[in-house]
Nucleic acid binder design. Structure first.
Lengths: 223, 223
DNA sequence: AAATACTAAATCGTATACGAACTGTAGGAG
DNA sequence: CTCCTACAGTTCGTATACGATTTAGTATTT
């Protein structure tokens, strides 16, 4: 140890974090063959910790694994994508509904500020920032969620989509405008202490509509 | 190799299955300290595959892990239990709703048969079989679920509760009777091709009511 | 030319060994 | 009596080595 690198966590932990990040940022895109020995070498560790990391990622659905063959970054075909988004809309709807009674005025203010920035992105046409802000907006609504499992499922769902988001998930201009309006409506509902069921329905529909718009835009057939 | 044991899967796979089973059937109850070397010896393998198995179980939330300390079967305190059941009611509601359009007459017949058996269990007071049948009943409703992620989440949720179910999850006599009636109502809804939202609401309420009854019965305060 | 059998390279799977970190206990100082 | 320190035992963490399996390429046969 030449330097006292205060790196927290074990090597398998770091391998896990690193791989997850590289999958998320597109370094390893879907279908990429994850060769244990190669990754181990890249990370400067041996293969055992890498195997563990991959097992965890497998359990999370981020990589698929085949005995004696190897691991590949889990691809997302259109059907997979549809199912994941559908699941996410359900989970996010629930997360928003559960959080809504706990959302305070200051949270609303933060959310409105984010939404305002999203409006600006529409004018300056900045899809990348728009997508980021959209994520932030919903995070504000979730962060008060009292049920940690729900929150965990939301994050896992997005982690699963992380790799595909950067490459194929583009916002649909027309839909983006609608989306911002729906955000306002959602905030109104929450502010007025609407029924949890109503909030849930609105939040879920908001996500579903985005998905539908995306599908229509890309021409995928949505049965 | 004295005998040609045609065991499918790798040793880590078997360790995973085995551990999961032993957690589910109560051999390892919550809080149990999972010592790698001991488990490895019990299973007749070395520690490396056991570590992998435990990593996977950790990612599924069945065991909790602490660096350089060890793994223990994830305990379920009342709060944890509440959150898990709440999550399950949401997921199961969605699963039922998504499946409902695809449930055919023969499925309905099977479900009715199971429900009839549940009625018998009420008369002969057989809580264990009742609980099993209840699971079967809902499985019939799910098995047509077109979204594999939702189905996966249902199974994971139950796996998480598996250990606690056998020891503390007892049916509440009064509630059990109600539950059977609600099953009939649920089948009616599905048969009459009710709106998916309506089915979802009914299925979710069914689960929530069971949880509430359980909480009231055990005296836990449910805010 | 197509199909099959064989060989070699690549890669995974796991046992073993050793080092690192944590835990609990015994002994001594205050 | 309490607190701190030293030490030993336990258990985890990972590197390495070697066997097992798959894959791909080549040669041979029909």
């Amino acid at each position: 140890m030449t330097e006292a690198e205060t790196v927290t966590g074990s090597k398998s932990e770091r391998a896990y974090i690193s791989l997850k990040g590289q999958i998320a940022d597109g370094t390893y895109s879907p279908g990429y063959r994850l060769v244990l020995s190669k990754i181990a070498e890249d990370l400067g560790v041996s293969v055992v910790p890498v195997r563990e990391a991959i097992r965890r990622l497998e359990a999370e659905g981020l990589v698929s694994f085949q005995r004696n063959v190897g691991a590949t970054v889990a691809g997302i075909d259109p059907t997979e994508y549809l199912y994941t988004m559908q699941t996410l809309s359900i989970i996010e709807g629930a997360a928003t509904a559960l959080s809504s009674p706990l959302i305070g005025p200051e949270d609303i203010i933060r959310a409105r500020a984010i939404n305002a920035q999203m409006r600006e992105c529409l004018q300056h046409f900045d899809p990348v920032r728009f997508t980021r802000l959209n994520q932030d907006f919903h995070n504000v609504l979730y962060e008060n969620c009292p049920n940690p499992h729900i929150l965990d499922l939301v994050h896992r769902g997005w982690a699963r989509l992380a790799s595909v988001r950067s490459s194929t998930f583009r916002f649909v201009p027309g839909r983006a405008r609608e989306s911002v309006e729906e955000h306002e409506e959602l905030l109104h509902l929450i502010e007025s202490r609407a029924d949890a069921d109503e909030v849930e329905r609105a939040a879920r529909l908001h996500r579903s509509a985005t998905l539908d718009a995306y599908l229509a835009h890309t021409g995928t057939d949505h049965s």
